[in-house]
Amino acid sequence: MENLERNRLLRLAMPWLVMIVFFAIWELACVVFAIEEIILPRPSKVFEVIVLRFDILLKFCLQTLWSTVIGFGLAIAGGLLLGLAIGASPFVYSGLYPLLIAFNAIPKVAIVPILMIWVGVGFLPAIITAFVISFFPIVVNVATGLATIEPEMRDVMRSLGATRTEILVKVGIPRAMPYLFASLKVAITLAFIGSVIAETVGGNNGIGFLMLSAGARNDAPTTFAGLFAIAIMGILMYAICAWFERRMTKWAFRGELVS
C-alpha cells in the first residue's frame, strides 16, 4: 500500500524532476563551456528577464493567446462541420480530401505575406494562420470517427427506420466526439505555431513580434523568455483541452475508470 502511494507521488513529481535536471544541465553547460549570452543565455538569466519584464511579457502573451484561441475556436467550428460532411458522405469525401491534403502540405509561413496583402498587419493574419494550421487535424479526426461506425450499428438504426440525419445525430456525432477531442490536443499546439509564425513574419503585436524585435536588438534572454512563455501557454491550453476531453467523453476512457 505504502509502495503504491510512493509510486503515485513519484509519477506526479517526474515531470518537475526532469525539468529541473534539464535546466540544471543547460545552466551548467553554459558556465562550463563559457557560452556567450547572445548565443545561448543561461536559464537563470531567462527567468530573471521573465520576472523583471513580466508586465510587458504578459501583455504580448495575451495578444498571442487571443489570436490563437480565436483561430482555434474557428478551426473547431469549421473542422467539425467539414469533418461531419466528409465523414457522412462519400461524395464530399472523394471531392474534398485530395484538396485538403494539398492545402495541408503548403507551408503556412508562405501564406502569411499573402494574408498581409489581403488583410493588412495586426491580429487578423495571426488569427487566420492559427485557423488554417489547426483546421486539418480536426477535420481528419472527425471524419475518421464517422467513417468507422460499425456497419451493424448502422443496420440496427436503418432497420428501425432511422433517417440519415438521425443516424448522424444518434450514432455519428457521439461516436466522433473522442476523435474530435483527441485532435484538439494536437490542434491547439499547432494553433500557437500558426499565430506566432504570423506575428514573426509580419506583425506588430504578440509574442512573436516581441521575440523578433528582441532578436534584432541582440537581446537573447528576452527572445528566450518569449519562447518559454509560448511553451507555458501551450501546456496550459493543452491541459484545458485534455480536461475537457475527459469530462465530455468519459466513456472512451473506460480502461482507466475500471482499474
Binding site: 451493424e152 450499428m153 443496420d155 440496427v156 428501425l160 432511422a162 438521425e166 450514432v171 457521439p174
Partner: peptide
C-alpha cells in the same frame, strides 16, 4: 420499418447507459 435486430456483436452504444440503450428505438 420497426424491425428488431440483434447481432452476434451486441452493438450497444458505449456512451449510453443500459436504460438509454434499450430506449433507443423509442427515439426513432
Amino acid at each position: 420499418k420497426g424491425v428488431g435486430m440483434a447481432f452476434q456483436n451486441p452493438t450497444l452504444m458505449p456512451w449510453r447507459t443500459t436504460m438509454d440503450n434499450v430506449l433507443l428505438p423509442m427515439e426513432v
